[in-house]
Amino acid sequence: MSRLVRFNTRIGFKAVHEVSDSRVGDYGHMLVWGGIGTRMDAIVEELLIKWCTRFKFRN
């Protein structure tokens, strides 16, 4: 697992699909998403609730 995937998993993203060049069915994904790698999704509202308390604005 790459360093970027580990980081994004830790902050709340979930791996949805692993795109590689070894499967013919992944060529469409590579054309749309720009290459091989891991597609990850997250619910933005949940991430905001989880992380907003960590980042407070100071004036």
Rank of each mutant, 00 (worst) to 15 (best):
N8P: 06
T38Y: 00
V5F: 02
I36A: 07
I36E: 08
R10E: 12
E18K: 11
V24T: 12
E45H: 07
F55S: 03
K50W: 04
G28A: 14
G37S: 00
S20K: 09
V19Y: 05
G12L: 09
L4T: 12
M40D: 01
F7L: 15
L31Q: 10
M30G: 04
L4K: 07
V16Y: 13
K50G: 04
L47R: 03
F13N: 04
L47I: 08
I11P: 03
K14C: 06
V16F: 12
G25E: 12
A15Y: 00
F57E: 13
D26T: 03
V32A: 15
M1I: 01
M1P: 14
V5G: 04
M1V: 15
N59D: 09
W51G: 04
G37W: 00
I11L: 02
E46H: 11
S22D: 11
N8D: 07
A15G: 01
R10V: 03
G35Q: 00
E46P: 00
F7C: 09
R10N: 11
W51C: 04
D26F: 02
T53K: 11
R39W: 10
H29R: 08
V44I: 01
M30Q: 12
S20N: 06
T38W: 00
T53E: 09
E18S: 10
A42D: 02
S2N: 14
